[in-house]
Design a protein around this nucleic acid. Structure first.
Length: 282
DNA sequence: AAAGTTGCCTGCAAGC
DNA sequence: TGCTTGCAGGCAACTT
């Protein structure tokens, strides 16, 4: 389930592997996964172009091609985007294939295609503000501009629960279920606390916790859960699952020294929240 | 009244 | 076989 650290890992891998290579051909097997992009446009605009840079905003990848063509890739829940050797047997659910120079293929896979509004979007002329995928995406959580003050601005005065508010990509972009749960646990804040009841201290702690957990997860190359949904830029799993403190640890003991409470799992807005009732009491 | 918020439902496929 | 799970868009139903 790629969130910011997973997408950042893929970005770095692709930066190393495919920048400087050119697109020899594009195969689109499922055009319904494209967002506002006819498949023939994708093929025509990218064939022969060189990949110049790989960028990221929130959970979205941005590939810059020569001629200012830009490809936005949103992995959503089960999307994968990685490099394989040319002419290997393509895995199931491979929906778009970019055949590159130097004997590589860059493939887009998606097991559960849940997103009716599309996963890949071509934007011509580098006019990223026209992207339907990026339009609602807020401030990137790893950006230096993300300060404790900004976090306060996002959460202040809202009655919404802090857990669900942090999942909203329109304000702060990049956090998903895993890192919101982990961040709240590190900050010792109950997921059931309404935003407008956060103290100044708690906001500072939460900002530090979010920043820390994201950068540690990038160091560990992201989280691959039991479902194996996330793979990095060469199709390998990450390692941060070994360092999770609450996520998917229901009924196990809290690892904070001296705590020992059993991790609980609750439903908030129909999504699982994991937390420690000891360190995250209301 | 308009703008901002919140809650409910939907879609795919995997794994019980 | 049938039920549950998960992410974000779309929209309805609120609140201010």
């Amino acid at each position: 389930m790629p969130e910011l650290p997973e997408v950042e890992t893929i970005r770095r891998d692709l930066q190393n592997l495919v920048v400087g290579l050119s697109v020899e051909s594009v195969r689109v097997r499922r055009s319904d996964l494209l967002c506002q992009t006819p498949p023939e446009d994708l093929i025509e605009m990218l064939t022969g172009r060189c990949i110049e840079d790989v960028d990221r905003r929130g959970k979205n990848l941005i590939l810059w091609f020569s001629g200012a063509a830009t490809l936005i890739v949103r992995l959503h829940q089960t999307g994968q985007f990685y490099v394989v050797d040319a002419a290997t047997d393509l895995p199931e659910h491979t929906h778009v294939i970019f055949e590159l120079s130097a004997g590589y293929w860059l493939i887009f896979r998606c097991i559960r295609c849940l997103l009716a509004s599309g996963y890949l979007e071509l934007v011509a002329g580098g006019e990223l503000w026209k992207s339907a995928i990026l339009e609602p995406v807020g401030l990137d959580a790893l950006s230096p501009q993300f300060t404790a003050d900004k976090l306060r601005g996002f959460l202040q005065g809202r009655r919404r629960l802090v857990k669900t508010a942090l999942l909203d990509q329109r304000r702060l972009a990049g956090l998903g279920n895993i890192y919101v749960c982990e961040g709240l646990h590190r900050a010792g804040i109950s997921p059931e606390l309404p935003c407008n009841e956060l103290t100044h201290e708690q906001l500072l702690d939460l900002h530090a916790a979010i920043t820390d957990v994201l950068s540690e997860a990038v160091q560990a190359r992201g989280t691959t859960l039991r479902d194996g949904g996330y793979l990095d830029g060469i199709g390998e799993p990450g390692h941060f699952q070994e360092k999770l403190r609450v996520y998917e640890r229901e009924a196990l003991g809290c690892i904070r020294p001296g705590c020992g409470h059993a991790i609980k799992r609750i439903k908030q807005e129909n999504r699982s929240t994991y937390y420690c009732p000891g360190c995250q009491a209301r």
